[in-house]
């Protein structure tokens, strides 16, 4: 279930913590697996639990608590838009509306071609750059005016 490369990456994370605290690597391990597989399937969560010697439900608690983990498949590009108050004051909601209209989907929906999933996010700690959005959890996009959104969508093949 876990690729050799994922295992190696997870083992590097485990090494960050005291030997008897492997569980500390669970957040990183889930992120690594999600980056590779796109989402966290039941089997993936069990594999992580097994690798770290944790009860599967303890891993599931973590996977369901932190909202950047996806417990269901998402599109190739998951775009999370911050609509929290500081962003909303500077176009965050407009950016979300613009994306909804361009992609023809609402929050928590995926485009029929499976390319985009749109999510509403909470504060990303970049309020000065509003509107902000996060692509696949790793790429923060700042000052997303309509033309920037257009070019982002264009890049996401």
């Amino acid at each position: 279930m876990l690729s050799q490369e994922s295992r190696q990456q997870i083992d590097r994370e485990i090494a960050k913590y005291p030997a008897e605290q492997k569980q500390s690597a669970v957040m990183a391990a889930l992120a690594i697996v999600q980056m590779e597989q796109g989402w966290l399937s039941t089997e993936a969560i069990e594999a992580v639990a097994d690798h770290l010697g944790m009860a599967p439900v303890a891993v599931y608690e973590v996977a369901s608590f932190y909202n950047m983990y996806d417990l269901a498949p998402v599109g190739k590009y998951k775009i999370t838009v911050c609509t929290n108050l500081p962003c909303a004051l500077s176009g965050g909601v407009h950016a979300a509306d613009y994306l909804k209209q361009k992609l023809g989907v609402g929050f928590n929906e995926t485009t029929p071609d499976g390319r985009f999933t749109l999510k509403e996010g909470e504060c990303m700690g970049a309020c000065g750059d509003a509107p902000v959005m996060l692509v696949n959890n790793v790429r923060m996009c700042s000052f997303m005016q309509p033309e920037q959104i257009d070019s982002l969508l264009g890049e996401c093949k």
Binding site: N84, L85, P86, E122, C123, M124, G125, A126, C127, G128, D129
Partner: peptide, 11 residues
């Protein structure tokens, strides 16, 4: 873990 809406200094 800067996530308080309005805060973006640590970044």
């Amino acid at each position: 873990d800067e996530g308080e809406p309005g805060t973006f200094k640590d970044r």
